[in-house]
Simulated assay, not measured.
Amino acid sequence: MTYTGDVQVGGPADVRELPALTISKLAVGPFDNNAYLVRCNDTGDGVLIDAAAEADRLLALIGDRPISKIITTHQHGDHWQALEQVAAATGATVIAHPLDAAALPVPVDLEVEHGDRITVGAVALEVIHLRGHTPGSIALHHPGHLFTGDSLFPGGVGNTNKDPERFARLFTDVSERVFDRLPDETWVYPGHGKDTTLGAERPSLPEWRERGW
């Protein structure tokens, strides 16, 4: 089956097989969040990106193969409702940016900054700090693939609550740290809804800047 990234709450995960990684995308309720299980094909090691909700379904997705880390992309509660339960069940290292770490329901074991790398078995995910949606929002980059949390979606950057300074900060970070350095074919896996690519969104950057959201 061809991966599309179109998933529904209560439905099955969509699975993408890459040369180095396998990515499983699962939609969880009640806020239609996306959670991503990323596994190294060589070692079987896994990380979960955003233990958003429905711990039982996330643990079923993880299955009998262990995960070593849970990465929370930002501090908003809809992205960590299942964090405490999944962390307790798996013993995984809890990871977040220090500016958002204090808002999480469990202690953060590893704080990461812009440019750091998080290992998944034999593979590394690059941390990209995208300020504006929250102070400590992060994206995770594997060549050709970008997990953006709530900082970038099809059709625009994340919500900045109509704050011009926050919007300018997020738009600048997304422009400089994502669009200016990553190619059009980079696939975007957001925190809610459907996936996109940088190439599909790049022509709209001037429109986003003009409208201010």
Rank of each mutant, 00 (worst) to 15 (best):
D195A: 14
R131I: 10
R117H: 14
V174Y: 02
T160P: 08
R131A: 13
F167E: 13
L170V: 08
H192D: 01
P107Y: 05
L152R: 02
L104N: 04
L152D: 07
A102D: 14
E185A: 15
F171D: 14
V108K: 04
E165P: 03
L104F: 02
S137K: 02
D116Y: 02
V178N: 13
T148F: 11
T119N: 12
L152H: 11
H114W: 00
P143H: 07
A168Y: 05
D163F: 11
G132T: 12
P154W: 04
E176N: 14
T148C: 08
P164Y: 08
D180M: 04
D109Y: 00
I118M: 00
E176Y: 02
E176A: 15
D109W: 00
V112L: 03
A168I: 05
E113L: 15
H142K: 06
H129R: 07
P107L: 11
T160I: 09
G191P: 01
H114D: 15
G149I: 01
F179M: 04
V178P: 11
A122H: 10
F167R: 07
L170A: 14
R117S: 11
A124E: 15
K162F: 12
A102E: 11
G144S: 12
F171T: 09
L140C: 13
D195R: 10
R117C: 09
A124Q: 12
G156I: 00
P164H: 06
R169K: 12
A103G: 10
V120S: 08
L146N: 08
D163P: 12
L182V: 13
A102C: 11
L110G: 01
L170S: 10
P105M: 11
P105C: 11
G156E: 07
T172G: 14
P154Y: 06
D180C: 08
R131C: 09
T186M: 06
N159Y: 13
K194Q: 12
R117M: 08
H142N: 04
T148Y: 06
F167N: 13
G144L: 04
E176K: 10
I118R: 01
P164D: 08
L140I: 00
V127T: 06
S137I: 03
N159L: 13
G121A: 05
H141Y: 14
T160H: 06
R169Y: 05
V123E: 15
R181Y: 05
V108A: 07
L130G: 04
G158D: 10
I138H: 03
F153A: 09
T160Y: 09
L125F: 02
E126D: 15
L152N: 09
A122L: 01
H129T: 03
K194G: 15
G121Y: 01
S151G: 07
R117Y: 03
F171N: 10
L110R: 11
L110M: 10
G191D: 07
P105K: 03
F179Q: 10
V106P: 01
F179T: 13
A102K: 06
G121M: 00
Y189W: 14
T134R: 01
E113F: 13
V127E: 05
H114M: 02
D180W: 03
T148L: 06
T160W: 06
N159I: 05
A102L: 08
V127L: 06
I138T: 15
I118A: 00
P190F: 03
G144D: 09
P143G: 07
P135S: 07
F171K: 09
L146V: 02
F147I: 12
D184C: 09
V106W: 01
N161G: 12
